[in-house]
Amino acid sequence: MSAAIRALNLNVQRGKSHILHDLTVEIPRGVIMGLLGPSGSGKTTLMRSIVGLQRIASGEIQVLDLPAASKPLRSKIGYSTQSASVYSDLTCIQNIRYFASLYSQNEKTPEQILEDVDLSRNAHQMAESLSGGERARLALATTLVGTPELLILDEPTVGLDPVLRVQLWELFKKLASQGKTLLVSSHVMDEADSCHQLILLRNGRVLAEGTPSELRTRSGKSRMDEVFISLIGGE
């Protein structure tokens, strides 16, 4: 089967700064791909390019066998930004119902989606009164409307305590087991072990890619942040 995402010699410029340099990556279907790197390494820009929000200077991106930003992709990609993009003056269920009603087809009902992210009990609670973890799960829920095959999640666990982070990663695994492809960015290196494969970004270039164990072997380190530092040193 073809790759979920294929970026070839991707260059992105924002204003005068060159954010992504000749980036080439391939993300297979059905995996959880971790996109790791320090802040400013281009993670968000790469994700925005994939979902079609970022204009690219040169290169090519194919998403689910279609060029990025093409119309049919809109119902197949779920995307959540770093800040939970939900309407804080609507309840959870109203948020999901609204987003779902923008799609001509929905794989799941709004109630099932809330069940999926374990927010059924909060269905009628206003989004503004949710806790950090609940809000993060609601943001994830908004990516599950339509018929998504690919979920692009930008730092979904940022600012959450370790218990909530583990819960969210369990959820990601559940979604992957349902056949979805996930691209999840993080700058918390210990989350890397929950991913099937990893891309390490630095200064808009791919520093390394592979499974967590491959990267460990290559660097000879055991902890992921050490792996990263050692790979930077070996550049």
């Binding site: 930004t81 923008l102 908004t142």
Partner: peptide, 11 residues
Amino acid sequence: SGTLERLMISP
């Protein structure tokens, strides 16, 4: 709040 971007990638 980012909801506009969320809408721009929807249909």
